[in-house]
Amino acid sequence: KEMRNAYWEIALLPNLNNQQKRAFIRSLYDDPSQSANLLAEAKKLNDAQA
Rank of each mutant, 00 (worst) to 15 (best):
L16M: 02
Q34S: 06
A23H: 10
L12W: 11
A50D: 09
I10M: 03
L16Q: 00
I25S: 02
N37D: 05
L28D: 00
L39G: 02
K1I: 11
A23P: 01
K44S: 10
S33N: 07
L45P: 00
Y7A: 09
W8K: 15
E41Q: 14
R26W: 14
R4H: 14
W8G: 03
M3Y: 13
K21A: 02
K21M: 03
F24A: 02
P32I: 05
E9T: 13
S27H: 09
K43T: 04
L16R: 00
L16K: 00
K43G: 03
I25N: 02
M3D: 07
P32D: 03
K44P: 00
N18D: 06
E41G: 05
K21Y: 02
A48E: 14
S27V: 06
N18K: 12
N5R: 15
Q20W: 02
W8D: 06
A40P: 01
D31P: 01
D30G: 10
L45Q: 05
K1L: 12
N15T: 03
Q34L: 08
Q19T: 10
W8E: 07
S27P: 02
L45D: 02
L38A: 03
A6Y: 12
N37W: 15
L13F: 05
E41K: 14
L39R: 08
Q20G: 01
N46C: 02
K1N: 12
A48N: 10
Y29L: 09
N46M: 01
I10Y: 01
W8R: 14
A6Q: 05
N37S: 07
K21R: 10
N18R: 09
K44H: 07
A11Y: 15
S35A: 07
N17C: 05
E41C: 10
A11N: 15
E2L: 07
E9H: 14
N17M: 05
A40L: 10
A36P: 07
A36E: 07
N37E: 10
Q19W: 14
Q19L: 11
L38T: 05
E9P: 02
Q34T: 07
A50L: 09
L16I: 05
D30A: 15
L13T: 01
M3C: 09
W8Y: 13
A50V: 14
Y29T: 09
A36V: 10
Q19H: 11
S35H: 10
S27C: 05
D47E: 11
A42C: 02
L13Q: 03
Q34R: 10
D30E: 11
N17T: 10
L45F: 04
Y29K: 10
Y29F: 13
A36M: 08
A48F: 13
Q49W: 08
K21P: 00
S27A: 13
Q34A: 06
Q20D: 02
K21S: 01
Q19K: 10
N17S: 12
L45M: 08
N5I: 13
Y29W: 11
D31T: 11
R4Q: 11
D47F: 11
Y7K: 10
N37K: 13
R22V: 09
Y29R: 11
L39A: 06
A23I: 13
P14I: 08
N17H: 08
L16T: 00
L39N: 01
W8I: 12
Y7D: 02
E2P: 07
A42K: 00
A50R: 05
N46F: 01
A48C: 05
S33Y: 06
F24V: 02
L38P: 01
R26F: 14
F24G: 00
L38C: 03
R26Y: 13
D30W: 12
L16C: 00
L39W: 04
L39P: 01
Q20E: 03
N5W: 15
L38M: 05
M3I: 13
L39E: 02
F24L: 04
A42R: 00
K21C: 03
M3P: 06
Q19D: 11
Q34K: 09
Y29N: 10
D30L: 15
D31V: 07
A48L: 12
L28H: 01
S33W: 05
Q19F: 14
S35R: 09
A6K: 08
A40Q: 12
I10A: 00
N15K: 05
A11Q: 14
L38E: 01
N15C: 04
E9N: 11
N46E: 01
A36L: 10
N5E: 11
N18E: 11
E2T: 10
I10F: 03
K44N: 05
N46Q: 02
A11R: 15
L45I: 09
N37L: 14
L16D: 00
N18M: 08
F24N: 00
Q34W: 04
N46P: 01
A6T: 10
Y7H: 08
R26M: 14
A6C: 04
P32S: 04
Q49C: 05
K44M: 12
R26C: 07
K21V: 03
K1S: 12
L12D: 06
R22S: 08
N5Q: 14
F24C: 02
N46D: 05
I10C: 01
L12N: 15
K21T: 02
Y7T: 08
N17I: 03
D30M: 15
L38G: 01
A36R: 12
I25T: 03
A11C: 09
W8P: 01
S33Q: 08
A40H: 09
R26S: 06
K1H: 15
S27M: 09
L45H: 03
D47Y: 12
A36N: 06
L38Q: 03
F24Y: 07
A42H: 00
A40I: 12
P14R: 12
Q34F: 05
A11E: 06
A11T: 15
I25L: 13
Q34I: 06
N17W: 04
I10S: 00
A50H: 10
D31Q: 13
A11S: 14
Q49I: 10
E9M: 15
A50P: 06
A40K: 12
A50N: 10
A36F: 13
R4F: 14
A40G: 06
A6D: 03
Y7M: 14
P14W: 04
N15I: 01
D30S: 14
K1P: 10
A23N: 07
N15R: 05
K43S: 04
L28I: 09
A6W: 15
D47P: 01
D31S: 11
S35L: 10
E9L: 15
R22N: 10
N37G: 07
L16N: 00
P14M: 09
I10Q: 00
A50T: 06
R22T: 09
N46W: 01
N17P: 02
Y7W: 12
Y7L: 11
S33H: 07
K44Q: 07
A36Q: 11
K21W: 02
D31L: 08
D31Y: 12
Q19M: 06
Q34G: 05
A40M: 14
S27G: 07
K21G: 00
S35W: 12
P32Q: 03
I25P: 00
P14T: 07
N18L: 13
P14G: 06
F24D: 00
L45E: 03
E2R: 07
P32C: 03
L12I: 08
A42T: 01
K1T: 09
D30Y: 09
Q49K: 05
K1V: 10
N5D: 10
N15S: 05
Y7F: 11
S27K: 13
K21Q: 02
